[in-house]
């Protein structure tokens, strides 16, 4: 896919808007899907790591500003790009089946949400002690489900 900073920023803005205005309110039993996580995965799959780091950082910082989380998304999404970019870009070339894609997204989401919740706890944003497992696993599954839907809608 041709690299275009303007287009990627517009897509980032669309995902950011979706996250703020839609998916923050589409909670199921308090669980939320992180579509910005899916956007970062998409960037990792189709762009080089440095570029993905930049786009992910800008979008994560915007999300931090708009959700008053200040640094939590930036930290966790930076780690996500550093840790998962190579894997995701390799698997994107392999043309995975939907089930395999779902498992890949779910696996990365579980690791990402673990980091995210731990960082949130460190930042004192969430008291995740009581519902840690619920938020960790639940948010991961929800995000993976939304991710596979996006994947099915956008794949050829």
């Amino acid at each position: 896919m041709k690299q275009s900073l303007g287009l990627d920023l517009i897509i980032a803005f669309i995902f950011l808007t979706m996250q703020i205005m839609l998916f923050r309110h589409l909670d199921i039993l308090g669980l939320q899907a992180d579509v910005m996580f899916l956007f970062v995965l998409w960037i990792c799959a189709h762009r080089n790591r440095t570029y993905a780091l930049g786009i992910a950082a800008v979008s994560a910082l915007m999300l931090d500003i708009l959700t008053d989380t200040w640094g939590v998304h930036l930290f966790s999404k930076t780690l996500l790009v550093l840790g998962a970019q190579r894997l995701v870009s390799q698997q994107a070339e392999n043309k995975l089946l939907p089930g395999q894609t779902f498992m890949l997204i779910l696996s990365i989401a579980i690791v990402y949400n673990l980091v995210f919740l731990l960082v949130s706890s460190f930042a004192g944003i969430y008291d995740t002690n009581l519902m840690f497992i619920k938020y960790w696993i639940g948010n991961s599954v929800y995000t993976a489900l939304v991710g596979i839907i996006f994947y099915l809608l956008t794949s050829d």
């Binding site: 440095t50 200040w70 640094g71 930036l74 930290f75 930076t78 550093l82 460190f122 004192g124």
Partner: peptide
């Protein structure tokens, strides 16, 4: 390069998290 950029971003993130409670912020 990516590791350096990443480390920088992580430091910025940590700074934001810590500064979040600061009066100036």
């Amino acid at each position: 390069r990516d590791q350096l950029i990443g480390t920088g971003l992580l430091i910025i993130a940590l700074t934001l998290m810590v500064a979040r409670q600061d009066d100036a912020f």
